[in-house]
Design a protein around this nucleic acid. Sequence first.
DNA 1: TGATAGTATAGACTATACTCTATACTTTAA
DNA 2: TTAAAGTATAGAGTATAGTCTATACTATCA
Lengths: 120, 120
Amino acid sequence: MLIKELSNRTGISIHTLRFYENYSLFRGVSDENIKTNNYKDYDESVVEKIKMIKGAKEVGFTLSEIKALLDSWYNEHFSIDKKVEVVNNKVSEIDSKILKLKQVKNLLLNAIKVIESEDC
Amino acid sequence: MLIKELSNRTGISIHTLRFYENYSLFRGVSDENIKTNNYKDYDESVVEKIKMIKGAKEVGFTLSEIKALLDSWYNEHFSIDKKVEVVNNKVSEIDSKILKLKQVKNLLLNAIKVIESEDC
DNA sequence: TGATAGTATAGACTATACTCTATACTTTAA
DNA sequence: TTAAAGTATAGAGTATAGTCTATACTATCA
């Protein structure tokens, strides 16, 4: 698919997608058979990647962290064990973020409880 | 406590604390009895507030979102019901962030599963 | 075949959240 | 009493992550 469709599929603006592509978070390929243009084609795997990037960003991961993860995942010089290790580390970070969210949530729920009990 | 201790207690740099105070996320009070300086004093409630801010930031909430929450919480013109509503909305946002984190986590765990099964 | 819409690249601009520097004043311990 | 450390304020500088503009080329449909 071309960039417009990629934008529609992911809900990310064309400008931002190009910014991400420049940042090397993913890349499209121009069809070598077509000499008249260098329009880039993006496949389903790019859509999946971007959905992951989107989710990771919304919960506070930076582009540089996301890039580091993707880079090691697709690094041919990394052993499977090494890749698994990198990903497992990221999973731990996610767990600690979930914990943090739960703490903030409890803090808010507790504040509600206190204010409602004072109401009596 | 003075700003240095506040910094030690929260793990946030003095510079950043001042930036937050300017942003009106909290405020210290200068002792009116002491005329020789205008050193600001911060109490335990400020420490708690900053810990909340820190946690909220780490999971992707912006300073402006955090400020909006604090502002309505301490807004004397808001009814208790209104405050509870605002906080409950934030709790929903937290729940959806937790969900997103779990999705990204499953995505990563699944990637590990796939790469390890290919290894055989 | 020409108007319209789409694509690529480069570079300027912006918002957010710090981070640092300069300056001036205050406190404290030697 | 003075040197060192701490505090306040203002403003400049930086990093991250977009967002927009200009320019040029390409595709498609009436």
